[in-house]
Design a protein around this nucleic acid. Structure first.
Lengths: 343, 343
DNA sequence: CGCTTTTACTAAACCGGTTTAGTATTGTTG
DNA sequence: CAACAATACTAAACCGGTTTAGTAAAAGCG
């Protein structure tokens, strides 16, 4: 059996209370002499205080829960790192959970977080929780929550950190149009996901701005993976060979798009201009490097954690949603038509 | 204040012990009737049992700790996912910690894991822990540990899951030689890291097998990132223009190598053959797709978690190191010289 | 029917900590 | 030097659970 505070107390010939004060660095009520004696003893015998036991009385675990769809999606590692760095700097440890955007898993993880009494939760889900009882439990528990990247209907009362997806997509697609593209497809992510639909809005706005009629044939939903981008693009181009621009729902999709276009002998950007979203590291390493809407992924994670820790420390403060800036990273998968005409 | 077991007990008119038996699904000593009554009550009033409190008496937290250098390195997301999936299937939650291979952070996280009484630890570090006291505490705590991917001197008594890096590198480099390369550089990762040195051994063995004299000029250490691969390659080629094959320490490095070679107008594989290591998703999406030693990353994580859970359940069993298979993924960054000669 | 066994439960001790109320000793002050 | 305050501590209650020992009632059995 591991040593307990009681063992240390009796070995040092003091009460548990005194040892408790020493290990918590509580300066009151213990002389420098005994403090040092106890510290020395703890060090010598190798006593490690049990934080679980502490947590039950002080009602804090110094732990936060983070739910994301999948670490393997290159968007998330940076977000996670941002969360973890902020947590670590403030003495918190983070539970990482992959939900695969599966409601059942999300529910299970959230309930586990409540059971394990995490101090706060950061969550990125596919959309709805669809569980009134769980939602009620969450509200009742009064646990701080911060939403990340995608709004969640049942959790709309909690603050979140977002990017203006519609505006960013509008800017990107407008750039495609400026460059001379007019038949622009949107190879999107999963239907009905908040960010996907917001980006669709931006895409439509950009077309409308330019007086281009929206063609429903040019919209194709799929998954957030290379294969989906590849397959949707092959279908898209075979059905609509006039396509001269593609807005990929994220960079992973864009990489699949690129592979399809390579196979189809479509030159990028000469035949088709390509725009991605996210700015994952690899988007700049492709041939050609992909023009993309850069999201501050690390910063989103870091800010979400900051907001959460603020809520934990002061449960009364009401945080506002935070919108971080995107920037259009212009690379070689898009090119001004003018430049080419001059040549 | 949140409801406690005491509240439920008094509301139901039973003792705490009875409620405890119900929430733990302990079939003894409680009638079907009262069980249902209590369950219904718990559901109605929204009581969530406090697992922290439970953990202190049952001495298990259903939590495991995972330390890796950095989620942002594309090798780790799959590993993490393997760990998390196995953990989740068995009712465990995982603490994710990024150490940046910084000994101080590793030490801090390990101590935190002890304090928070995780049931087991999976760790991937840069090498040595360099802290006798901490090592002693770990041994003393009798906590199960599984080493992942890189051996750790102070923790050599614990089992681990590895890949035979030397053999895998030997096979890959031999393939380069078979294809006609003879002046092969090793653009390595960080010096003195276990896997990096093992791969160096394999590289040397392959050269020796072929009777090629090892040239120290052809070895260059760096970091595990694209930029490092890029810079080391530019230096390497400018110092040794006769290079006709490059073994990159990992795929991320290989991607940097590829960029450098593109800039230097070296054709891959015609002028220089390129071999990577890991088989991260993106290695197959590059132009040309990179031939690489495929590591079962997800499986490594999953197996590590399996071993750990087995040790947790039966602390007496002694696990053996596990070596998982690698496979050489042949893609277009290497090519048989014979084929080209026939043309 | 009387005796033993089983069932369903309670009360109390316990897990490893924190915290509060109380006490003896020392130090300060007028 | 008495009165009071501060210091250094202890004992005991408490946190929210689990577990053990004990008990009353019901069931089983010859």
């Amino acid at each position: 059996m591991a040593l307990t505070i009681k063992d240390i107390a009796s070995m040092a010939g003091v009460s548990k209370g005194t040892v408790s004060r020493v290990i918590n660095n509580n300066p009151e009520g213990v002389s420098e002499e005994t403090r040092e004696k106890i510290l020395k003893l703890i060090d010598e015998v190798g006593y490690v205080p049990n934080k679980m036991a502490r947590s039950i009385t002080v009602a804090e675990t110094k732990t936060i829960g983070l739910i994301i769809p999948d670490v393997q999606n290159p968007f998330f590692p940076q977000v996670i790192r941002g969360v973890e760095d902020c947590a670590m700097e403030n003495g918190y440890t983070v539970f990482l959970c992959n939900s695969d955007s599966d409601i059942k898993k999300e529910q299970k993880y959230l309930y586990t977080f409540l059971e394990k009494r995490v101090d706060g939760i950061i969550i990125n889900t596919s959309g709805d929780l669809n569980d009134k009882k769980l939602t009620a439990l969450i509200h009742k528990s009064n646990i701080p929550i911060v939403i990340l990247d995608r709004k969640i209907k049942e959790l709309s009362r909690y603050p979140g950190v977002y990017v203006d997806n519609a505006r960013a997509a509008r800017e990107g697609v407008s750039y495609l149009i400026e460059n001379g593209a007019s038949n622009i497809a949107y190879i999107a992510g999963v239907k009905d996901v908040y960010t996907v639909e917001e980006r669709l809005k931006g895409y439509c706005m950009a077309l409308e701005d330019a007086g281009i009629i929206i063609n429903k044939q040019y919209l194709s939903y799929g998954g957030y993976n290379i294969q989906s981008g590849y397959e949707r693009t092959r279908e898209m181009i075979s059905d609509n060979p006039e396509i001269d621009g593609i807005f990929a729902g994220c960079d992973t999709i864009a990489i699949g798009v690129l592979r399809a276009l390579r196979e189809l002998n479509k030159k990028v950007p000469d035949d088709i201009q390509l725009l991605g979203f996210d700015n994952i590291t690899m988007s700049g390493e492709m041939v050609p490097p992909i023009t993309t809407v850069s999201q501050p992924m690390y910063e989103m994670g870091y800010q979400a954690a900051r907001m959460l820790l603020a809520s934990i420390q002061d449960k009364t403060i009401h945080q506002e949603d935070q919108y971080l800036e995107t920037v259009l990273m212009i690379r070689e998968s898009t090119e001004k038509k003018q430049v080419r005409e001059e040549i």
